[in-house]
Design a protein around this nucleic acid. Structure first.
Lengths: 238, 238
DNA sequence: TAGTGGTCTAGACCACGAT
DNA sequence: TCGTGGTCTAGACCACTAT
């Protein structure tokens, strides 16, 4: 929020959410906005391009920037968002149950990660419930080389909050894959699955700002509760 | 390619792909690059931020831009990419079989689209096969108000190619949802599914540059063949 | 013709990392 | 201290849309 352009981004996003700029209307022009906020046009453009990327607006050359009808929920798949943040922002009434914390090596084959060395990690298994229904089984492997120890209290609250606000780590990007698989006996049990039901598995590797790999995550979703919403822009393959 | 910054983007991306800038190495600094390409630093920065978004590099303040180990395939889910483009870029040996072309109204409830009016469209059902195996069943509804007619030849080749290069439409963005569902009898038949197997369904609404909605698509994926790869950057919910 | 967004420039100052 | 990327400016020219 300390940058001009992100302050402007949040201000405009807020006005779109609160219908001060209604869906289908045009924002003030870039030159008008630069006068409004007392800044240069390039700075306004930086804010607008963030709004564009996040699906708030569509820019039309020669006409202006039009407000889109967005109903994105940004489920965890589409970005890197912690479960706690999601819970808060969507007003879900969910609970997290910590099933297990112990030291384990990362099962690298599962994550399609090629290495010859063993990766010591803290293994955390957690079950996410909404209204008593089990929805997601999360299994995290956090590398010991980056985070030596994780307490039960931290796992019950939020790993990301701990990493970012207590340890000062900056989480930057992740690669993830989504597949449909047959559940293990254990998964069947925790997620209360019927016979023959498949599960959706999201596996990701998460990296810090300095490109250090520090976390492997496996999220097992109940098929009937899985719903991933995305906003995408066209980009030709070249 | 006619802009400086996208020319520079492609040039650097190419050099990364061909290991002229190897994984783990630093790119020349922004000032060096601006001298190299004979341009201003802001233009270089625009090219670099594209590389950042697409997962080619990671910028580290005070140090430089480091080349990432990317193995993204960008399956259709993560962006808006036509099947033909994918096929070409991944060297898959796939075939498309046109099952049906006819006039239908869009089943708007399925797409969670609220409207009271009927939407006349051309319905196109196509089956995608790789090595004789049916992988995806695509059902498209293309609004008559934007594209009055679609021929069998076009459907067999590429709708996107036709829209963009023949009709001059500019496809801009889409909203999509991914769910797991029980297949219909028809879907079971076309995708040669075993008893009890679920399918992955991707439903999207696609828009033009001027925010005109013009296409609804339903893609039914065989669960064992579904694999979605993504690259995501951290963005806190605020 | 006037207004819009798209590109590009040359320069400035700052925050951060390495030395 | 020096070099890196991050932010910001004031201005320029272009392509497109509307009238």
């Amino acid at each position: 929020m300390r940058n001009k352009y992100s302050a402007i981004y949040h201000d405009i996003a807020d006005k779109i959410v609160h219908r001060i700029y209604p869906v289908g209307s045009y924002l003030p022009s870039e030159t008008q906005l630069s006068q409004l906020y007392g800044t240069s046009r390039e700075t306004i453009r930086k804010a607008l391009s963030e709004l564009l990327i996040n699906g708030f607006i569509q820019k039309i050359r020669g006409k202006g920037s039009i407000v889109l009808n967005l109903q994105r929920f940004n489920f965890p798949v589409s970005g890197i968002t912690s479960y706690k943040e999601l819970n808060r922002s969507l007003n879900m009434h969910s609970k997290t149950e910590v099933l297990c914390i112990e030291d384990r090596h990362v099962p690298v084959e599962k994550f399609d990660y090629q290495t010859t060395e063993a990766l010591p990690a803290t293994y955390v298994a957690r079950l996410r419930k909404i209204d008593q229904d089990p929805i997601v089984l999360d299994r995290d492997y956090i590398l010991k080389s980056v985070v030596p120890h994780i307490s039960h209290a931290v796992a019950a609250d939020s790993l990301y909050d701990y990493f970012e606000n207590k340890l000062g780590l900056t989480i930057s990007y992740a690669t993830k894959t989504i597949t449909v698989e047959h559940p293990s006996v254990e998964e069947k049990k925790w997620l209360a699955l019927n016979e023959y039901e498949d599960v959706v598995v999201i596996r990701s590797r998460t990296y810090l700002e300095d490109t250090t790999l520090f976390q492997f995550t496996e999220s097992i979703h109940r098929p009937d509760k899985f719903n991933f919403v995305d906003f995408a822009r066209r980009q030709k393959i070249s």
